[in-house]
Nucleic acid binder design. Structure first.
Lengths: 284, 284
DNA sequence: TCTATCTATCGAAAATTTCGATAGTGGTCA
DNA sequence: TGACCACTATCGAAATTTTCGATAGATAGA
């Protein structure tokens, strides 16, 4: 089974015609016909129903379609990853939620980079699910996250516990259900617990990335939202933010996830730096 | 890119030798050499480092390994699903550790098949890491597993807690460190906790599959090993097995993992059956 | 019935793959 | 140091596969 059979299949499926697929693929129509026939021989059933108006997918063809896409994607991905496998002596991709980048890690990462020029570091902010997925598929090397998961072959190490509190920049305390509430998605655990505690406050998901700081947005707009205590404490002290009475608090452990089998020369300076920075926030 | 290049690569990786791979694949050594060279031309870098002692994976080869597995699996899955595409309306692949197949699910699956002839079910036994990997890559639709993970787009649902106890078929209680102990790998959590509790008892990993039942092996050979209590309770009652005093017990929750977005007509009868069967084992 | 438009097949040429033989490389041992 | 062994790489030939251009076959529409 050659990936080109899958590519040809996908092009015929897209164009609806052997001739058009041939043009797009720069081969002759008879080559397309032969390839599709070859594919059908391998699969044991036809994938297209031919007619004067072209070719339509059969039930088997519809079943095969997602596999054909997967084959092409896996192969493309393989080529990409293999081609990157020795560009840097070490390249480490780190992921964490945005709050941990801004509040804890970014300055230290910059400093670490200058101390270890041989090690390329890429920092990614993302939601928990995305970070988990990328750890598993190998496009992320280590992550700091709220959910204690165990991707295969990784070590999960507790760093500290993060307390989330509701704060508001409004002069008067917001009422439940009030439109000044902004839901920030701090991960699936928070999402679930928040939905349980405040089912009436669920809003469409808000996606965070490294470039934006929702705290500034809340300060500027008299909104209320949940934030890690560690970030809002200075603003509470100065009166810029207030804590509404009787609002739920959520506490989630923060974990460091990194490969068991790793190049310690590359990883351990980063791991140690993360442990030091996070040590400041450890509660007893 | 032909899937046979991936298969050849995997066989060389497994055997460590072009010659052995050639024997296993029923082709000549020069064909293996040519195929690996062809693969390396496509990827743009070597995947094996050749030596007199055989062939070892390079960094690029290690990167490529998981993609090669994925290519082979996607194609196998494609063939299976396409071949079933007009026999069954839906095909659902279920994975679980062997103990859950034999002790809980197999009879029920057989019964369910006769009740829902339009739904093809394939049952796979495997270790936790493999099941997780296959859920993520889409070659497994739902799984029952010990580790609470959250593959993207899946629901994780607690079923029951499984207690693992040490049992022996020997007449006299085995001593720690004794050679009658057989280590069975019940998953990464068990492996880790076991290594912590009994560092002197770690043995090379034992792989389980659906065809073998380690309990029969223990009964026949006067060995001791850890098993789920639910499986060994009848043997303990009858005196065929004994529990050594003061041995550690391990308890792990069992979860059902299935897609959030799913064809409920196909999935829900299976999910309900699994919940019913597992309901028997729920402890308070 | 004719025309147009599509796919299927044919035979030839080109390209690729496989084989058996053997060259090349390098480790081990006397 | 040389012989031997065990592995992979390469060669040339043969086998197989793939592609092409030409054309047959099928079918819808005018």
């Amino acid at each position: 089974m050659d990936i080109n059979l899958a590519r040809t299949f996908l092009m015929v499926a897209e164009t609806g015609s052997f001739i058009d697929a041939a043009h797009r693929l720069n081969i002759t129509q008879s080559t397309v016909s032969a390839r599709i026939k070859g594919l059908e021989d391998l699969l044991g059933r036809p994938v297209f129903e031919r007619s004067k108006s072209g070719a339509d997918l059969t039930a088997a063809g519809e079943q095969f379609h997602k596999h054909a896409l997967a084959l092409v994607r896996v192969w493309q991905r393989a080529q990409l990853e293999v081609s990157l496998s020795d560009q840097h002596r070490d390249h480490i991709a780190i992921g964490a939620p945005a709050t941990l980048w801004h509040g804890v890690l970014l300055k230290s990462i910059a400093k670490l980079r200058s101390e270890t020029p041989d090690i390329a570091i890429s920092a990614t902010a993302g939601l928990q699910d995305v970070l988990t997925q990328r750890l598993i598929e190998g496009t992320l090397d280590l992550a700091i996250m709220y959910r204690p998961i165990q991707p295969p072959g990784h070590t999960v190490e507790h760093l500290f516990d993060e307390e989330f509190v509701l704060v508001t920049s409004a002069r008067t305390a917001p009422k439940k259900g009030s439109s000044d509430y902004m839901f920030i998605n701090w991960g699936a655990d928070f999402q679930r617990d928040h939905a349980t505690a405040y089912p009436e406050l669920i809003k469409p998901g808000l996606s965070l990335d490294l470039g934006s700081n929702p705290l500034e947005y809340v300060l500027a707009n008299e909104l209320s939202a949940y934030f890690p205590m560690r970030l809002v404490k200075p603003y509470l002290s100065r009166g810029r933010l207030k804590q509404p009475k009787r609002a739920r608090r959520f506490v989630y452990p923060v974990y460091l996830v990194y490969p068991e089998a790793r190049d310690e020369d590359a990883y351990d300076p980063i791991l140690d730096m993360i442990r030091r920075e996070c040590g400041r926030y450890a509660t007893d």
